[in-house]
Amino acid sequence: MSLTIKDVEYVANLARLELTAEARERFARQLADVLGYIGKLNELNTENVEPLVNGAAMTNVFRDDRAQASLPREKALANAPEQAKGFYKVPRVIE
């Protein structure tokens, strides 16, 4: 299994991670190792096997659609790196 620097750049962009050139190279190597190891799953025939998404047999859980109290605004904003006028503050998005 090989992974090009271009592949790493593509995935890093999807994951919103800025990587240094050194990290890109290192991750390309290490991820190729891990993906190579993971390739052993192809030894198994899973043709008629249903996927399992969690370990406990469960059906979907619904709750009543009722209004409930939520965190007050100042508590919700208390950990924000930057806030203004009761909102999260970010760089301008729309020119």
């Binding site: 790493v8 995935v11 891990v34 799953l41 198994l44 249903e50 996927p51």
Partner: peptide
């Protein structure tokens, strides 16, 4: 970062069936 990268790759377009869906079936 390494795990976010691996997971993003496994879920990305074109690889989802080969990795994530395969693993979910093996999990069964």
């Amino acid at each position: 970062k390494r795990r976010i990268m691996l997971g993003t790759y496994a879920l990305s377009s074109g690889y989802y069936d080969a990795y994530y869906m395969k693993a979910a079936k093996v999990r069964q």
